[in-house]
Simulated assay, not measured.
Amino acid sequence: MADPAMIAVRFALYAVLAAAFGLPLFALQALRGGERVVGTALRFRVGIVAAAGAGLAFSALWLALLAASMGDTPLAGVTGETVALLIDGTAIGAAWTARMAALTLMLPVASLGGRAPRTAFGLLAVAGAVALGSLAWTGHGAMDEGVRGWVHLLADLAHLLAAGAWIGALAAFLRFTFARAPDPVLAQRVLHGFASTGTLLVLLLLGTGLVNGWVLVGPDHLAALVTDDYGRLLLIKLALFAAMLALAAANRFRHTPALRATVDDPVRALAGLRRSLLAETTAALAILVLVAWLGMLSPPASA
């Protein structure tokens, strides 16, 4: 049975590292000129600092839990020697070290980024990509070898970054629409401007998801989708992803045009948009829980 504590920490890592990458990427793409300096950008930087700090804490806890699991000891019994061996002697340790370095770099850059905001957000997005991408070495994608292994790892990496960009955008949209004094013009503009990027992210998620599904399940194990724990969780994940697609389509084709049409009195349009964004974010977080859980199970193709 998968360890609930490890699943919880893996979920937290996926969530905070997605925000650490997705928020600066969104700010770089969606904010214009002076908007990268004023209050909106400041709140973005505060969120990035919080995500990077949480990422450091959860990464340290994750490594300790992994060392405890590998040594078959309680968490309190983990020694520095065991942790050092894990860091120095494995690819997982190298990925963890790169993640910690990237997250540590993000703290001063985000805190002092007001002087050169475009450069700062660019550096933050790159560092966030390294931190989030390092999770690919903790999942099934790092277990295969040869060409198959590289294809799977690269698909995992692209899947993670696309998901992080989407989740970061959701966090930003929630910030715009739930502000004390929401700016409907700005909210409408960033929502509308994200449409083409959102389409690209969906295509990337679908393509890399198909690659991962082919490697982890494969045509010879389709029956396991309904008979195996991994398969059933995967089907739930796909259903939640379909729900996210439907909600994103509603945001694009219904709620955003309604906000533009009622910009002088946006209360009703904002209420509908808020409900839709909350539902989409809830589905995204539920998917991250499932991803954290699936990473602890053996996929059907490994049987």
Rank of each mutant, 00 (worst) to 15 (best):
M100Q: 12
M100G: 10
A101T: 14
A101Y: 09
A101M: 15
T104H: 03
M106L: 10
L107V: 13
P108L: 05
V109C: 07
G113Y: 01
G114L: 13
R115E: 11
P117F: 00
T119H: 14
T119C: 13
G122P: 04
L124G: 03
A125V: 02
A125W: 01
A125R: 02
G128V: 02
G128I: 06
G128H: 04
V130Q: 04
V130S: 01
A131E: 00
A131C: 06
L132D: 05
L132W: 02
G133T: 08
S134P: 03
S134M: 10
S134L: 07
S134D: 07
L135I: 14
L135W: 09
L135C: 10
W137H: 09
W137S: 09
T138E: 13
G139L: 05
G139S: 08
H140Q: 07
A142N: 12
M143Y: 09
E145T: 13
E145Q: 14
V147W: 11
V147G: 01
R148T: 13
R148Y: 06
R148V: 14
R148S: 12
V151N: 00
H152G: 08
L153W: 09
L154K: 06
A155F: 06
A155R: 01
D156E: 15
A158D: 06
A158Y: 06
H159P: 10
L160C: 05
A162F: 05
A162L: 08
A163K: 00
A163G: 15
G164F: 04
I167G: 05
G168S: 07
G168A: 09
G168T: 04
G168D: 03
A169G: 15
A169D: 02
A169K: 01
A169H: 06
A169R: 02
L170D: 02
A171T: 12
A172P: 02
A172L: 10
A172Q: 01
F173A: 10
L174S: 06
T177F: 05
T177A: 14
F178S: 12
F178Y: 13
F178Q: 12
F178E: 12
R180I: 02
R180N: 07
A181L: 12
D183S: 04
D183Y: 01
V185E: 09
Q188I: 00
R189W: 02
R189T: 02
R189P: 03
V190K: 00
H192W: 08
H192E: 13
F194A: 08
F194Q: 03
F194L: 05
F194Y: 12
T199W: 06
L200C: 07
L200G: 12
L200I: 13
V202P: 03
L203T: 10
L203C: 10
L205H: 03
L206S: 13
G207D: 09
G207Y: 08
L210Y: 14
N212M: 15
G213D: 05
V215D: 11
V217T: 14
P219H: 09
P219G: 11
D220H: 13
D220R: 15
H221V: 03
H221N: 14
A224S: 13
A224M: 10
V226G: 11
